[in-house]
């Protein structure tokens, strides 16, 4: 099924699932506290256990969410990697959109003006 790309929106299809398998498997392993400790103790040799590509290893070293996504990372697994550095989803959002965390939060807060109209059911074309 071919569908038009959605600007700024990576879709985790089979193509990316295939490409990112080793990277995501490494991130998935970080659910485990002992694995997180092993990663922190020796990042490179921990990553070497997962047959990651050079691009994936570089993306891990770069801490760049965009690079990790481009290397096939899925954000649900990457979250476990980000968690090691105590980064939350707003930190990730700011990094990917090239703004400060405060700016990123301010943008989100701007949507609060819709709250009342959604709650009363006025805002909707149904």
């Amino acid at each position: 099924m071919t569908t038009a790309p959605i600007p700024g929106t990576p879709v985790f299809t089979g193509e990316f699932a295939m490409k990112g398998y080793a990277l995501n498997k490494m991130c998935f392993s970080l659910n485990n506290a002992a694995n997180r400790a092993a990663f922190l103790a020796d990042e490179d040799s921990y990553c070497d256990k997962f047959e990651m590509t050079g691009e994936q290893k570089a993306a891990i070293r770069s801490r760049s969410v965009a690079a990790l996504i481009a290397a096939g990372g899925n954000v649900y697994y990457l979250a476990k990697f980000a968690g090691i550095f105590h980064l939350n989803v707003q930190d990730l959002g700011a990094q990917q959109t090239g703004v400060t965390v405060e700016e990123f939060k301010a943008k989100l807060n701007g949507y609060a003006r819709f709250n009342a109209d959604v709650n009363t059911g006025r805002l909707s074309n149904v």
Binding site: P7, G8, I69, T97, L108, Y111, V118, G121, L123, V126
Partner: peptide, 21 residues
């Protein structure tokens, strides 16, 4: 939306449509 350049995307209009529907 957590990833990509559209991270932070929110759509109250579509949310309202969903809630009503």
């Amino acid at each position: 939306q957590l990833e990509g350049e559209r991270a932070g995307f929110i759509n109250p209009q579509f949310d309202a449509l969903c809630l009503n529907a």
